[in-house]
Amino acid sequence: MIITRRSTLALGLAAGLGLTMGLANNATAGWEPKKPVQFVVMAGKGGGADKAVRLMQAIIAKDKLSNVPFTPINKPGGTGAEALIHLKGKKGDNHTIMFTLNSFYTTPLRQPALGVNIEEFTPIMRMAEDTFCLWVHSDRKDINSVDDFVKAAKAKGKGWIMAGTGKASEDNLLTDFLNSAYGLEMKYVPYKGGGKVAKELAGKNADSTVNNPSEQLGFYEAGTTKPLACFTPERIALFKDSPTFKELGQDFVYFMQRTVVGAPGMDPEAVKYYQDLFNKVFTSEAWQTYRKKKALQGDALSGDALMAYWKNERDVHKAMLMKMGAIK
């Protein structure tokens, strides 16, 4: 009896905290999570995906969309391989979801040894499609257009450093595209997470990046970095003066999915729960404001439509990777 009381005392805080949370009301019929939901981030801290997850976690908590907390956990290793393997290993687990990007396609294609088949995962909801721009430091007064950029990068040859988020990641694909489209030899250096990449440019440890707007926005607003052109079909409202690569005669448009995916073999009722929940997150004012501020595009997409989108995107990426010689 004494022992019980003492150990209860020792862990009392944990229990107390759990209770206050557990009482939050959300009594709808159907499946509900019974323990904290692990929200895996397939990228490093401070990047676009990480920031979005922290925001969604806060929205879920603030609007009391769930009776349990969603706890983000970063697994950036091996351009998302770590996260994919983790999720794959959670087969049948209703309490593990992941926020994913395009390494969702490229990493399994590049590393068949991982044995990851994305069709096994449970589609929950696409929350947005993120865009990419080509960025340089504002102190490069000589670079004000893509033409200037090409000239400067050519002059520096292999000494031109392009920082990105991992090998064969989105950033790597875009770098390869730029290299082949403009006959450049930029050197690609991988860092852990888009936030770090943005910082490397602002600190002049890299010559250029292909960050998402959300990652560079802070530095852009502070006047430290500037976008030269964007990989979008139309100009981004935030950067009206930056042309699209399409305008510049390059038939190249590239988006990155921002999608919530569940562990393989999740119960249909749980899937429905998460779809309803993320639908509420999607329509929340905070998320819509965030989308607008960060120049995010792409509508909500779930279920079979999302799976079809995945399959199509995977084929697109397969063709890209084959073209750049990353896979056979």
Partner: peptide
Amino acid sequence: TLGIPGSPTTAILLGGMVIWGLEPGPR
């Protein structure tokens, strides 16, 4: 100032800030 959290705990601090419109960054 850079929006790069140093620990999991500061990362949550960041999430809390963003929802209140307090975007970490140079500004």
